[in-house]
Computed example of a mutant assay.
Amino acid sequence: MSSLLQRRTVSAPQGSASVETVIHADGLSKTYPDGTAAVDSLDLSVRRGEVFALLGPNGAGKSTTVGMLTTGVVPTAGRAWVAGIDVAGRPADARRNIGVVPQRNTLDRSLTVRENLIFHGRFFGMRTADARRQADLRLEQVTLADVAGKPVDGLSGGMTQRLMIARAILHQPAILFLDEPTTGLDPQSRLALHSMVRELRAAGQTIMLITHDMQEADQLADRVAIIDHGRLLALDTPASLKQSMAADTVVTVAAETPPRQLAALLREQVPGIHDVHILQNAVLLMVHGGRAAFPAIVAAVTGAGIVLRDIRVDEPSLETVFIRLTGKELRDR
């Protein structure tokens, strides 16, 4: 992928965000008329050139946060700036600095692949010749030049995502929002999209990745903000979040007994346990020296006459960070 992105120099309003901060949110909140607090006093900053993951389960407030940052949702309280522009005060100017790849396909099915990009460029004020030139460059960048004249209905899921990314960066936005970009993609298309995200970052593009996929956030993000029930729970690099576990090993144990009873047994009989979390069908142990704890776990379970179904030993992950913060698995929320 060629490096076609151009950096912008943006002056931030005094007291809000520096020129190296592309997104800045200060006490951002949204409460809907029915009383639902979707986002509660969110503070965050996204640095120029980084991939910043907004990670959380469905209903955590991710979409509302992105809606406020992209001018589609009016905040109840707080302020936000994109590329130094007050999102609520100057929404039209803010939108010129934003590129969005939504979850659903929003391409114009009456137009060809190339025409979709040209129309987008014209919408953002490009001259026709410039829009055509940029469309051709972007199609080369996302390896879709060979289907430029085809209708978008004939594209695969992966090709559709690549085209929507090409459209979103056509006007050279300061920030690209990717909303659950790999949902529904096959493994090959997923890997291809991950590669594209890395290449965009290498070209200088700032990206906010909205996802509930822990592995995706771990692999792609420079920093991760974990949110749940509208509140920011943690924000750091993936490595630092995992190091915050205060345990070097995570052991998941499933047996023919209720998880709560199993947890009590293991806490009492297995040394080195730092924390215990009861999952839907298993118990998760955060321990020191987990490899050494393995035989003690087996002995405790079998010694109590309980049938051991499964035992798995892993290193700490963003999934276990989320469990430590919330007490539940992300997929259960």
Results as ranks from 00 to 15, higher is better:
Met1Pro: 15
Ser3Tyr: 13
Gln6Thr: 12
Arg7Thr: 14
Gln14Trp: 14
Ser18Met: 05
Val22Ala: 14
His24Tyr: 11
His24Val: 05
Ala25Asn: 03
Lys30Asn: 07
Asp40Thr: 15
Asp40Asn: 15
Leu42Pro: 04
Ser45Phe: 09
Val51Gly: 05
Ala53Lys: 03
Leu55Phe: 01
Asn58Arg: 00
Gly59Ile: 06
Gly59Thr: 04
Gly59Gln: 06
Gly61Ser: 13
Thr70Leu: 13
Pro75Gln: 06
Ile85Ser: 02
Asp86Met: 10
Asp93Thr: 07
Arg95Gly: 13
Ile98Tyr: 07
Gly99Ala: 10
Val100Thr: 12
Leu107Met: 04
Leu111Val: 05
Thr112Phe: 07
Arg114His: 07
Asn116Phe: 02
Phe124Pro: 09
Glu140Cys: 06
Asp153His: 13
Thr160Ala: 10
Thr160Met: 09
Arg162Trp: 07
Ala166Asn: 08
Leu170Ile: 11
Gln172Val: 11
Gln172Trp: 06
Gly184Ala: 03
Leu185Thr: 08
Pro187Gln: 00
Pro187Val: 03
Ala202Glu: 15
Ala202Pro: 08
Ala202Leu: 13
Leu209Trp: 03
Asp218Thr: 02
Asp218Gln: 00
Gln219Leu: 09
Gln219Asn: 04
Leu220Arg: 03
Ala221Arg: 12
Arg223Val: 00
Gly230Trp: 07
Gly230Asp: 11
Arg231Ser: 12
Arg231Cys: 07
Arg231Pro: 08
Leu235Asp: 10
Ala247Lys: 00
Asp248Asn: 11
Val250Thr: 05
Val251His: 00
Val253His: 09
Val270His: 03
Pro271Tyr: 15
Ile278Pro: 02
Asn281Ser: 14
Ala282His: 04
Ala299Glu: 13
Val301Asp: 08
Leu318Thr: 00
Gly327His: 01
Glu329Val: 00
Arg333Cys: 14
Arg333Thr: 13
